[in-house]
Amino acid sequence: MTDLYHPGVPSGQPIWSPSAPLLKLKGLTYVHQDTVLLHEIDLQLARHGITLLLGPNGAGKSLLMRLAHGLIAPTSGDVIWHTQPDMPPLLQAMVFQHPVMLRRTALANLTYALAARRVPWRRRRALAMETLERFGLISLAQRQARVLSGGEQQRLALARAWVLKPEVLFLDEPTSALDPASMRAVEEAVHAFHAEGTRIVMSSHDLNQARRLADDVVLLCGGRLVEHTPAERFFQGPRTPEARAFIRGELIW
């Protein structure tokens, strides 16, 4: 029995190790008015990297991210974040497909996020300005956020996530309605977050984007998890017929 004893770990609590998965979804199910929108999703995400959530429209990508981020509660199943014992919960941020712009200036959108993270007000403005500069938005600092263009709003949403210094970032189709230049800016931002050590979970229905960014790929179809594979393997030879059809560009529902 002695080999099962781990000193300092209360019984019943998972043992933390740096190689343990960061996020575990266990039998995650979401039902809305008798329709099963997500069907017993089991998924483990490693501590580092960029995960691309692929799948056709309506597959449940947004829903899965909102569940994992804690915006909605699952009908059944669990979302388990593996954090070091006695540590505060992971800092998470999410950029929505249609970013929500507060009815304030671009600058005030960032200082609001800093206030939400209880950054002392003296430091907020400088931090926000620095971030606007980094995202090429400094000339728009005093502009009302809601009158910015779609690409500018998406960059501002990324900047707002940036000031939070999140450990995990969810991005819901951040480039779906953008021109190529804005799309490139978003992908550069994703790399920058990654370089800072942020764990990234991003949905997309753009295969080329997935090729450029992904470390691993999760394919959802009709509310079911079809495949979770390292990106290289996924694009060389997906295991499932659904994935093959998806790569060939055939719509699957």
């Binding site: 909102r66 981020h69 998470q92 929505f96 929500v100 507060l102 939400a116 939070l164």
Partner: peptide
């Protein structure tokens, strides 16, 4: 306004009480 902001504020982990002053200001 709350309908519009709700998910974003939830994502920022701002509850209803902390959201109120900001909502009044933005409106």
């Amino acid at each position: 306004l709350w309908e519009e902001y709700r998910e974003q504020l939830h994502s920022l982990r701002i509850g209803r009480v902390r959201a109120m002053p900001g909502l009044l200001w933005d409106a």
